[in-house]
Design a protein around this nucleic acid. Structure first.
Lengths: 192, 192
DNA sequence: CATGAAGCGGACGAAATCCTCCGTTTATCG
DNA sequence: CGATAAACGGAGGATTTCGTCCGCTTCATG
């Protein structure tokens, strides 16, 4: 199996220390963005990852490259969530709950482009997003077919709602619980 | 009737040009925040308002003062929405719809502290927020009493959901419509 | 209209941030 | 082990942004 996704430059094999640093950088960047917001200084990210700024810029030539990489990885995670939900949900409604619940649980590791945030996402990222919509569309179709979901439900409704709930709220410990309440109420409104 | 709320310094009467500038500054600041995001430069706001930066800093001693003023005004608007909804809704559910729908319509004039945005809100702002919760609580109570709303519904659920839908999304023209779809589905899930 | 207090404007010094550049270090391979 | 290409680190120049300062302008009042 080929390596999942060599993020910025799949030109040739990365040296082992470089690979480690790249991984450490994305981890640190995600944490820093959730801790200090979208405009966290590059120097902070580099320091958190234990490398110099030079190394950061070697891996991600600009700030925007870094952020759109984080977004791309997030979409890949969301796609994995959608596929798992499609497979594991006992009913279509339950699949939708699993899908959105996963996003809520992972909100500290996701960087999603809501509220005009990171970027208009690259073509590759758009492809992943389209695939997410496709999977969610299949789940919905099952629900419409067995009459447990309203026929006018669109993938976009689910994806947008999930993205909204997955937005981070650093200052409130009850946030996770509140999100799940909203999710439950929302799902109840989806039946015909 | 006393002047609604003299924002930063209710010390004494403002000179007419100063009052006009202050109003123009909040208007320009709101627009600029929605156009360029929370970190729009102070100089841009001043220029949009047609004044110098000195004037901006005279009215709002720091960036944070300006932003928390915008948040405060937004909460006052939301409170007005809540009262109007309580008065005009033919049923409790309809009141909730009016309340949230207003926030969606006004999203370009509202600066609400979601996703850790503007600020932890001042004491005065917290008081307004508490009043919003009180009004929404009354609406809910009417609905619970006549069995059109679930008894476990909390004001917080409504306010948080409304705030989420009121977040601006500059890049998508369909956003308003999508929000109203989500609102409709959500409200359907609120019945016992 | 005269006068003084309140308000205005924008140049400016300090601070923060971006990203580059290049001498030094390290992994890898024969 | 030794050579070499790849990767690293962080000082520093350029730029952006903040918030201040103070001489000039305008409103309000008698």
């Amino acid at each position: 199996m080929a390596p999942a996704t060599t993020p910025p430059a799949p030109s040739r094999e990365l040296r082992s220390d470089a690979a480690r640093n790249q991984q450490e950088l994305t981890r640190a960047a995600t944490a820093a963005v959730h801790r200090e917001g979208l405009n966290v200084p590059m120097a902070t990210i580099a320091a958190d990852a234990g490398v110099g700024v030079g190394t950061l810029y070697r891996h991600f030539p600009s700030r925007e490259d870094l952020l759109s990489h984080l977004t791309h990885k997030s979409f890949e995670q969301v796609l994995a969530n959608a596929r798992a939900a499609e497979r594991h949900g006992s009913t279509p409604t339950e699949s939708l709950r699993l899908f959105i619940d996963a996003a809520i649980s992972q909100r500290n590791e996701l960087v999603l482009p809501l509220h005009g945030g990171p970027a208009p996402t690259s073509p590759a990222t758009k492809a992943v997003r389209a695939e997410v919509h496709a999977v969610v569309g299949r789940i919905i179709k099952r629900g419409v077919d067995d009459a447990t979901l309203r026929p006018d439900l669109a993938p976009r409704d689910i994806v947008v709602f999930g993205a909204m709930l997955a937005q981070p709220r650093p200052t409130d410990p009850r946030w996770g619980a509140t999100c799940r309440r909203l999710l439950t109420m929302f799902l109840r409104g989806l039946h015909p």
